[in-house]
Structures are given as structure tokens and as C-alpha cells.
Design a protein around this nucleic acid. Sequence first.
DNA 1: ATGGCTGAACTATTCAGA
Length: 255
Amino acid sequence: MKIATWNVNSLKVRLAHLLNWLEANPVDVLCIQETKLTDDKFPVAELGQAGYQVAFTGQKTYNGVAILSRHPIEDVQKNNPRFEDEQQRILAATIGGMRIVCAYMPNGQEIGSDKFAYKMAWLAALKEWIAQEMAAHPRLALLGDYNIAPEARDVHDPAEWENHIHFTPPEREAMQGLMDMGLQDAFRLFEQPEKQYSWWDYRQMAFRRNRGLRIDHILLTKELAERCSACHIDRETRKWEQPSDHAPVVATLAD
DNA sequence: ATGGCTGAACTATTCAGA
């Protein structure tokens, strides 16, 4: 069983990339973020053709998340029931006995801004809700664009990023709070090469210079972490023509 | 410190992302 997450940065623009990637990487479950599509425009037929059932919740211009699956999707939940939010950032579903939570966590802009306050409130409410979900579902995976680089080794230049959004102490503490509940970072269960990132700015040739951040993550409960045999970031997509600024993260789980 | 890319929106310039 392979599960994955990818911020596609507009599903309209990236549909061909998504289909190409799924053909080469026929994962069982893929969580996508930033679809930027209202539900009436979601490409249900194209993804069905590719062998995927879908659940989605979107809005115009911003946000929007979806779960693609080769197996039946059950008990779909849109948004965090503990957090009133017009922005479509969370979708949860049960697939193959696992609770899959797809999340597009807020950007936060900068410390002190309204958006930062929103991000921190959103993360606090997420923790409360995930605690409840974990109690009900021992096999839970929280996949998505966290917009948080948890450690210095997840940032190309930690000094440059000190106190910048994605790497501020409160954000990192919020992510640690999720780990403290027993969730484990699938990527760090294994020895990894150095300087592995999942996002690179479009500007200043950041990808070619590998000036990136690791902000897309797959967190697993103990039961799933014990069954996880591999996790990697597929940076190849970032080399494609007109790419998403994020790369997919893939985890392999024993049945 | 700034601006640099990209996508989406009442197609031209602004907002938002990270």
C-alpha cells in the first residue's frame, strides 16, 4: 500500500502532470492540495479513467483539497468539525481500514499578521480534532502541505529563514505538538540523503540551486509507522515543464 | 530590505502563495 501527498498548485493547470505522475506512480491513495477548483469543475471523469475514485472539497481561486484512491472511499468528512472555516483545507476519509486526513495548512504570511493568528488557531484546532480521530482510528495518516519546516535540516539555509514564516518557533512547536500525541514523521523513520526538500520557490532558480524547504509531510500513528517500510520525496516532477512548486511525498506501508 | 515567479481574478493589475 502506497500513500502520497502533493500540493499541485492548481489542478486545472496541473491535471496532465497529475495523470502522468499517477501512471508512473500508481499509488493507492494520493492527497492533493491547492486544487483551486469549485466542486463542479473537479475532473472526476479523467481521474476515474485513470483508475481513481475521488473525494474533494474546493472553492474558487484558493485552497481546495482532494483524496484520490484506487480503493473504496468511505466516511468522508469535510473540514474540522471543531473549527469554523470558510476555507476548504481539510478532507478526511476511511480507506482500507485507515483514516486518511488530507490537509492544506495555512501559509501564515508573517509573525504578527492576522494570517499568522489564523494559522496558529487553525493548528490548535487541528490538534484537538486529530486527537479525537486518533482515539477512534488507531491507523491514521495525516498527509499534506503543512507549511512548516520542522527542523533546521529541513531548511536550505536555517540562518536566512530564522523567524521567517514556515520556520518560526510557534509553528515548529505546533508541529511538535502533533508529534507529541504519537504521530511520527514517515520521512524521518529512515536514513535519508542530506538536503531533501519538498518545495522550492519559483524565483531565483531556487530548484536548480536546491534552495528549498521540507514542508510537505506524512505523519503516521504508531500502528502505521510500524508498518511503514519506505518514504521518499519525488523531486523529478519539479523538473517538468511548468511544474508545481511542490514535489510529491510517498510512503510505503505493509498491508 | 527588496524583488524575484506563478496562478487566478471583471485581461491589467492586484492578491496570495511560500
